[in-house]
């Protein structure tokens, strides 16, 4: 005998539910969480280091490093003075919220203002996995070229901010910044764009100012339901 079961459930219900709980926790504790995506080698770790050097005087920052194997990125970040946790996915091509949940036990978000999650380098697999982040940002590096937008639209469309890294290499690559911003304006007009070079420092301040705005907004809104929270204007 056969029978149809009506189900109507998200495939990633488990991940989505945990991500929603994490999002509520971040909001409650007033910590701004950035899920940073890119292909391998686009400059995630270098951009994080440049960000740390600008913001770590003002804010308490933690970094979650997701990699298939090794802890080289986490070591670099720790040397830069940030609290860091390494997650080895053991072959998995993306981070899931359960991994973040475990990393938070080590990181203690209640003591932090900003958490940057360096996701596994991958332009496709990371996109469908919500980590409860406050901001999804991605990095496209100049050597990868601007045609990536049309080849992998998903990641560009699900990000609220797009960093164009390694702009110091523009002279030797075919990356067309004009075409890039036009295509972005077509496929995701709401995204903020930050061209920068971690080598020369050009553009890094604008990116850090944008993060700082988000951090302040998050602190101001933290735990708006609880009496201990500092409400009202940001300091």
């Amino acid at each position: 005998m056969s029978q149809t079961i009506e189900f109507g459930t998200p495939i990633l219900a488990k991940n989505d539910e945990l991500a929603n709980r994490l999002r509520a926790r971040y909001a409650e504790e007033g910590v701004y969480v950035v899920n940073l995506l890119s292909s391998p080698g686009a400059g995630k770790t270098t951009t994080i280091l440049a960000t740390l050097s600008r913001l770590s005087q003002r804010y308490r920052i933690g970094v979650i490093e997701g990699d298939i194997a090794s802890d080289v990125d986490a070591v670099k970040v720790k040397q830069a003075g940030a609290r860091a946790v390494q997650i080895n996915t053991g072959g998995l091509c993306h981070l899931e919220s359960a991994m973040i949940d475990r990393a938070l036990d080590v990181l203690h978000p209640e003591e932090l203002d900003l958490i940057i999650i360096e996701n596994v380098g991958n332009l496709v697999c990371t996109v469908d996995f919500d980590l409860g982040e406050t901001l999804r940002a991605m990095i496209l590096s100049v050597p990868e070229n601007d045609d990536k937008l049309l080849k992998y639209p998903g990641i560009f469309q699900s990000s609220q901010a797009v960093v164009v890294s390694k702009i110091d290499t523009m002279p030797v690559f075919d990356f067309d910044m004009d075409r890039f911003t036009k295509t972005m304006d077509q496929i995701n007009p709401q995204a903020r764009i930050f061209p920068l070079s971690s080598k020369t420092g050009q553009g890094v301040d604008a990116w850090c100012d944008f993060l700082a705005e988000g951090i302040e907004r998050c602190k101001a809104e933290a735990g708006s339901g609880t009496p201990t929270a500092g409400r009202g204007e940001a300091r």
């Binding site: 029978q3 149809t4 079961i5 009506e6 189900f7 109507g8 459930t9 998200p10």
Partner: peptide
């Protein structure tokens, strides 16, 4: 460009068909 996506990202199991061995109550 200020738009909200309300459908188009779903990853959802709508339904599935099962076979049961007998006509017993499930």
């Amino acid at each position: 460009g200020k738009t909200l996506l309300t459908k188009g990202r779903e990853l959802e199991i709508a339904s599935f068909d099962i076979e049961t061995e007998t006509d017993d109550e499930p």
